[in-house]
């Protein structure tokens, strides 16, 4: 049996967990390709105009998988704690896909994470495994293997990032962007590549010790409830002293970012900061100029070029 995984949204957070879990249970995985023009086009065609680019991309990936696998994995994630929520696009992903593609005869494999209502990840995976007719023991084994893989990869990424932070003499630019944006071939990758071409070292805010970052965020912004934004805001505080500039990279019109980025800009006085917004029409075109001038200004300031003093 083949399980289809859309390479968008939560894939970039749970990819290792999912892939290990299903492989351990003996399933074949069909992963949609990196985001391309065709995927964006199909996602846009299936979306309500005003949806955010990230959710349009998600629908494009789901559409790509239709007919290529037995099940498409679409989790629903609502809360990680009583006083937190995640973006409502992830609350509704399952129902939106179900309604949009209802004539296409698709089978969705879903699970529900809602810690505020005591729906834990562990129970969710157990239930999903049972639905796939696996024995309880093999499910447990697969889940723990998957958690192990997830943890190892998380630690490796953190370690790599720390090395970058300590070693490099290049200009370090912190990019504050959701995991599904910074890792996307169409949104984040061009920005990362361009920064590297300018001899900068991009530091990715999304790679962070999550618990520490969340705690930090609560100090800075007590009424912030969106878990992923809390992690990013906390990461900003944790990494700020080691970087030379900050890029806020978001998709149009992201709900949580529309408020949180404004808070970040208003509360970060000691580092240069720019905000880049990507939509499906222009993509990252035109951004090169902005990034280049941003980097130039930071370098001028550091060199003390007249008119650009610190």
């Amino acid at each position: 049996m083949k399980i289809g995984i859309p390479k968008a949204f939560l894939y970039y957070r749970y990819g290792y967990l999912w892939e290990t879990f299903f492989r351990e249970l003996g399933f074949e995985i069909v992963l949609s390709p990196d985001t391309n023009k065709a995927i964006i086009q199909s996602g846009t065609n299936h979306s309500i105009d005003e949806s955010c680019l990230s959710s349009k991309i998600y629908l494009g990936h789901v559409e790509w998988l239709i007919g290529k696998c037995d099940y498409i994995l679409i989790p629903r994630v609502a809360t990680y704690a009583k006083d937190q929520i995640v973006c409502s696009k992830l609350w509704s992903a399952y129902d939106v896909v179900q309604n949009i593609f209802r004539d296409r005869d698709i089978k969705i494999l879903d699970y529900n994470i809602d810690y505020a209502k005591n729906k834990t990840e562990f129970m969710a995976f157990l239930k999903m495994g049972r639905r796939l007719r696996k024995k309880r023991f093999s499910i447990l084994r697969a889940y723990f293997m998957a958690k192990q893989a997830e943890k190892m990869m998380g630690e490796r990424h953190l370690q790599e990032q720390n090395e970058l932070l300590n070693k490099s003499d290049d200009l370090k630019i912190l990019i504050i962007s959701h995991s599904y944006n910074i890792n996307d071939r169409y949104i984040g990758q061009p920005v990362l590549n361009y920064l590297r071409a300018l001899d900068c070292t991009p530091i990715i805010a999304e790679i962070v010790e999550r618990r520490a970052a969340t705690l930090k965020a609560k100090e800075i912004s007590p009424t912030l409830k969106w878990s992923y934004n809390q992690e990013l805001l906390g990461a900003l505080e944790l990494y700020k002293k080691d970087v030379d500039g900050i890029i806020l990279l978001t998709t149009f019109p992201c709900g949580p970012d529309s408020l949180v980025n404004e808070i970040i800009i208003r509360r970060t006085k000691d580092k240069p900061i720019i905000s880049l917004v990507v939509d499906e029409h222009d993509g990252t075109a035109g951004m090169e100029t902005r990034i280049e001038s941003f980097v130039d200004i930071i370098r001028f300031k550091q060199k003390g070029v007249p008119g650009c003093e610190k």
Partner: peptide, 29 residues
């Protein structure tokens, strides 16, 4: 209002209701 995310998601479902019950819906953002 423009960009209200839960309502945008609701719209995808409203379109199906509109079709199933043959009731016209006018959308204002």
């Amino acid at each position: 209002s423009f960009g209200c995310m839960p309502e945008i998601d609701a719209m995808t479902i409203l379109q199906n209701i509109s079709q199933d019950y043959e009731i016209p819906i006018l959308y204002f953002s």
